[in-house]
Amino acid sequence: MIVTIAIVRMRNLFGVIALSGVYSFLMASVLMVYDAVDVAMTEAAVGAGVSTVLLLAALHLTKSLEYPMPRPAAVPLIVAVGVGLALIWATYDLPAFGIADAPIHKHVAPHYLQNAIKETQVANVVSAVLADYRSFDTFGEVIVVFTAGIGVMLLLKGRRTRRDGSQGETP
């Protein structure tokens, strides 16, 4: 939480990025507490490792200082707090935290938990669901990663050919 507020306040983007790495590690430990070990591992590796490096690389391409806030902050603050209050009001209809007979535990999850070993011989149910029961879903995600990679390569390649053209700096 404190880290989040610091991220909101800080203007030096280098510090913001370092803090977002810290934030990712804290998030990973929270996810550990929620029993999501696979997700925590991914968050620690992705959030603290790869995305920090990518943000720093992008920062190297641009400027590292954010300008002081040029616009009035009241309207966004009101909007954000309003949305937050509405969402908090909405959470009171959710089932209480951690109880075993919430609707989410009654749908397909028991089937996965009871039949994963019998049907797939895989003890880690997350892997079984990821690659077997919901493999179409995962296939879509892999294609999204692929497409994003292709998009970045298209955007960032071939500077030398573009530089001579009159596309860039206008007088």
Binding site: A36, V39, L55, T62, V144, G151, L156
Partner: peptide, 29 residues
């Protein structure tokens, strides 16, 4: 056991998230 289904959904969402953030950073640069 805790429910495995949200773990699966979020696991993929994290990796997709970093890929899309990278796309955004490319556009920014």
């Amino acid at each position: 056991y805790s429910n495995p289904l949200p773990h699966v959904l979020i696991l993929t969402a994290i990796v997709v998230g970093v890929a899309t953030i990278a796309l955004g950073l490319a556009i920014v640069s």
